[in-house]
Design a protein around this nucleic acid. Sequence first.
DNA 1: CCGGATCCGAATCGATACTG
DNA 2: CAGTATCGATTCGGATCCGG
Lengths: 230, 230
Amino acid sequence: MAARSYGQYCGVTTAVELIGERWALLIIRDLLVGPRRYTDLKQGLPRIPTNILSTRLKELQQGGVVRRVPLHNCGLVYELTPYGRALEPVILELGRWGFQTMGDPSPDDVVTADSLTMALRTAFQTDAAADAEYELHVGDVALRASVRGGILSVAQLAPPAPPVGGRVPAGEPDAVIVAGPGIRRLIVGEITPAEAIEQDVLAVVRGELAHLESFAATFHIAPLAAPLTV
Amino acid sequence: MAARSYGQYCGVTTAVELIGERWALLIIRDLLVGPRRYTDLKQGLPRIPTNILSTRLKELQQGGVVRRVPLHNCGLVYELTPYGRALEPVILELGRWGFQTMGDPSPDDVVTADSLTMALRTAFQTDAAADAEYELHVGDVALRASVRGGILSVAQLAPPAPPVGGRVPAGEPDAVIVAGPGIRRLIVGEITPAEAIEQDVLAVVRGELAHLESFAATFHIAPLAAPLTV
DNA sequence: CCGGATCCGAATCGATACTG
DNA sequence: CAGTATCGATTCGGATCCGG
């Protein structure tokens, strides 16, 4: 059908024609966390109209970004192709940029597990990361972030039920951090860990307070790189 | 007015709300080359409706990405704020990604001076770059790319008139390369410099052929980083 | 020419309802 | 679970027009 073209022979233009439609990048953001079913995507993107979701998935498949994989038991998942996974640096850069000017959330803004997972990946500072296990709660999203040998991995925890026999990562976390959206101010360095606790932005409900320092060093986004030439 | 919100508190979402509308990223791409007047932007984006251009510029100003600067003589230009300039890594990553799957151009696709300038910046490999001056022609766009001490700077040459007294960068270029859109295949390594000449993808009309080798080493985009885990 | 504003038909998006 | 179908609300695109 030859999508509405920008009429230019250029990499940026080509990219924007493939992934520039409304909602597309957010679908990709969630798929960067892992393969997802249609319903998972719908839940992770609460405001997306279902017809748009299915249209985007079709377009992204046609563009070679997303693949549709039937599950052996039943059902199916969508996953990124290698080409789609190559968008990770783009999403990370975009997230880093957006993180800087995010103000406070609107009353009806939500934090989803996938968006928080990608935010942690965005903020992850390999060089400053000491081995540790953090459990992070924001709203009703619960994550387990493991740093091992400079590698970050994030697992999503089911919030309501206590871990009956579920696949909770082995071992106790070094710290359990319960935060509100104001945790953003810690990540960008607007406030120190001490101030964060003082101002009730977050609480360390288990583990030593010192781990919050390493958390803040591990997950950090510079406020705005001073331009070399202004 | 509270732009149509995605309803999430997330960096990617925030970014996409600011710069995700149609044409916005292309306006930013062109402004990354330098300040531009309304008319310049319209020429560099031949298919943009004028109302969309003015709407986007207003939105980008309100978002703190673009600034409107009156010129002392008369007229005015739009330029990126420091915050807007911080989008350069995003555009570069996006351009790199898009460059990989760009097929051949549609018959009515154009190559603009600003898009080619940004494409060179995208492909620039600091580590492999030897000092040199290249003059590059693609379609009727003519550029002078100077590499000095690992720093790339690109100047746009006015194509039709011979340099009467214009501000042509001092000195002769080491090589003058006249290419078609197939130069993309050289940049992504689909063909070697020798093959490029053989297949009439481009011609070195002045300077030694050897400079084409260093050109290809200086401007290169890897076909697709092999994913660590497939 | 520069820097837009206005008008209008066409395409897209969003919300809800419905289906195999 | 995995989508279609429908329909009103927006947005986009193309053309024209206007004040300096």
